[in-house]
Amino acid sequence: MSKSATHPWTLVRFAENGPIELAYERFTEGADGEPLLLMTGLGVNRLWIPDGLCHLLAGAGFGVARYDQRDGGESTHLPPARTGNPLFTLFRKRGEAYTAEDMADDAIAVLDALHWESAHLLGVSLGGAIAQRVALRHPGRVRTVTTMSAVPGDVAGLKSLRFIRMGTLAKLARLKFPDTREGAIAAGFEISRLLASPARPFDEPAAWEAAERTADAGVHDQQAQSRQIGAQWRSGPISDIRHPTLVLHGADDPLIKPAAATAIASRIPGARKLLLPEVGHELPEPAWHTVTREIQALAGLAAHT
């Protein structure tokens, strides 16, 4: 199933949730480890999760898989609906295309396709909110929950505004690039620049390489992003989560305020919050060892509860 030593992922396969197909793949290293599902953020594909982090997670005893959210990457993109600028979607009372429950069920479809009865979850940004929702909606399928750079999973629309730096969101919404591969690369680079920690020098060559490797129209597909943002949660509060939970957040996150991490950790019983110094709304290499160590410790805690 492995492609090559330089591409340490299995061939892409597709899980099904009704008419929705979800592209997923498994990391070939440590495939027999404890199941760990990686969940991506708004408008980006699974390739934004660095292979280097996955290598460390595999070495820590995890079998790693990642997938594209609906309306992202190689997963199903929904037909155009009455959507517009993602910024304005926050002011609506409900989405029109699908619900947050649907997106939580997508993750379960991927677990089913992987033949995993349960898994640890690591969700970044939008993926972090979805991980919380999966734990609420499908508690028996979840071992631990790790969110990073996320808002509480039971807030949306206007309620989420207090956690978001609107100036950065407005800058992201104003980015305009041609609908070409070159445009996707340029958009990915500019997004990386906007979301990086100002406490570290911005590595332009590395950002260009990453943008070329992860090039996807989703980073500037405002309709798809609006549908993802507009997916409303109507189920229970995150205070009902009973899984061991870790809440990571970049201390310098320019998009989601660290207050979001405080809110999540204060409402989920027993949750632990950790701010990552010199980290923005990103997964930079200096943080990989810390992220891996903390998730490994969380899994160890779950094994003894």
Rank of each mutant, 00 (worst) to 15 (best):
Y67S: 12
Y67K: 07
Y67D: 14
D68Q: 05
D68H: 04
D68E: 02
R70H: 05
R70S: 04
E74C: 13
S75K: 11
T76P: 06
L78T: 14
L78D: 15
L78C: 15
P80V: 11
P80S: 10
P80R: 03
A81G: 08
A81P: 00
A81C: 06
A81V: 07
R82L: 13
N85S: 15
F88I: 05
F88C: 10
T89V: 00
L90E: 00
R92I: 00
R92T: 07
R92Y: 05
R94T: 14
R94Q: 15
T99Y: 06
A100T: 14
E101M: 08
D102C: 03
D102E: 04
A104N: 12
D105E: 13
D106L: 03
A107Y: 07
A107W: 01
A107P: 14
I108Q: 05
A109K: 00
A109D: 00
V110A: 07
V110I: 06
L114W: 10
L114G: 02
L114N: 01
H115K: 15
E117A: 12
S118L: 08
A119S: 12
A119N: 07
L121V: 11
L122S: 09
G123W: 03
V124L: 15
V124Q: 07
L126N: 13
L126P: 11
G127K: 09
G127C: 08
G127P: 14
G128H: 03
A129M: 15
A131N: 06
R133V: 06
R133D: 09
A135S: 01
L136H: 05
L136P: 08
L136V: 11
R137Q: 05
